[in-house]
């Protein structure tokens, strides 16, 4: 690092503690480095200026999904938001919207965890008990490709922060969890479509989505939850009419 006068970037970071009436924004000056991301700046603040700044992070390579925050109003993984994209600043960092904030940038994930569990995101087999583990279930590359994209979700929850429906309906199962339901429904090894049907088709499921599409736009892993939900709607609609018009073709 050179000793010449450093370029500084101003950070406005959302601060909140449970015993405060109102959140505030605290301003920090952080030296600019070309290869730094917002997470590096947060770590710089915590290590050298203010150890009380609170946020989650771990892998710093875009795969653990901990470090999501609003950066200048957009949901981002802070480990993938380069300072160079926000020059000359100031850079405003806030917790993901549409979640309760516990402290500073830390949001409450319990609601999401319940939604995730509600779609039964595991392989359901009618022959479950007879697993002999002698050989793998066969799956061709094209069968694998049918769900692969929807299996890439890192649960970073940027999609929930981008979703106006999630903003106004706490019960909406939401993009990530519904995409995961679709991921298992499309997996040839799974036989749980019927079991997941009621959860996915209920009012808080796919039909609450109005296809804003921002979930897919902000997804750092290109999962396309909006696509997953619309595809599930298409399947659901076809299924509905089939039950209505050709009930004899439907297994009970």
């Amino acid at each position: 690092m050179s000793t010449a006068i450093e370029t500084m970037v101003k950070f406005e970071v959302f601060r909140y503690q449970p015993d405060w009436d109102e959140p505030t924004y605290q301003v920090y000056d952080v030296p600019y480095r070309e290869d730094w991301v917002v997470l590096d700046a947060l770590n710089y603040i915590k290590d050298t200026i203010d150890g009380s700044l609170t946020y989650r992070w771990s892998c710093r390579m875009g795969v653990c999904g901990s470090c999501g925050a609003m950066v200048n109003g957009y949901p981002k993984l802070t480990c993938a938001a380069f300072l160079s994209e926000y020059l000359p600043g100031p850079i405003r960092v806030e917790p993901l919207v549409n979640f309760n904030v516990e402290r500073d940038l830390v949001t409450d994930l319990e609601g999401f965890m319940e939604k995730l569990e509600s779609v039964q995101p595991w392989i359901i087999r009618e022959d479950g008990a007879t697993d002999d583990l002698k050989s793998e279930y066969l799956q061709t590359p094209s069968q694998h490709a049918a769900y692969q994209q929807f299996s890439m979700c890192i649960n970073c929850l940027l999609c929930y922060a981008a979703c106006p429906v999630s903003s106004h309906s706490e019960e909406f199962i939401g993009p990530a969890a519904l995409a995961l339901a679709q991921r298992y429904n499309l997996d040839t090894r799974d036989e749980g479509v019927e079991q997941r049907r009621d959860v996915i088709l209920k009012d808080e499921g796919i039909w609450e989505c109005s296809f804003v599409g921002e979930c897919s736009a902000v997804c750092p892993k290109h999962v396309d939850p909006a696509g997953a939900i619309q595809q599930a709607k298409m399947t659901g609609a076809i299924d509905y009419y089939r039950r209505l018009l050709m009930p004899w073709t439907v297994k009970s």
């Binding site: 595991w122 392989i123 793998e136 279930y137 066969l138 061709t140 590359p141 997996d187 090894r189």
Partner: peptide, 19 residues
């Protein structure tokens, strides 16, 4: 590893469908 496969791990596959 087969157990993981039965639990849904999306292993990359050969054309035959084997891992």
């Amino acid at each position: 590893l087969i157990q993981l496969e039965h639990w849904g791990c999306p292993w990359s596959r050969e054309a035959t469908g084997h891992v």
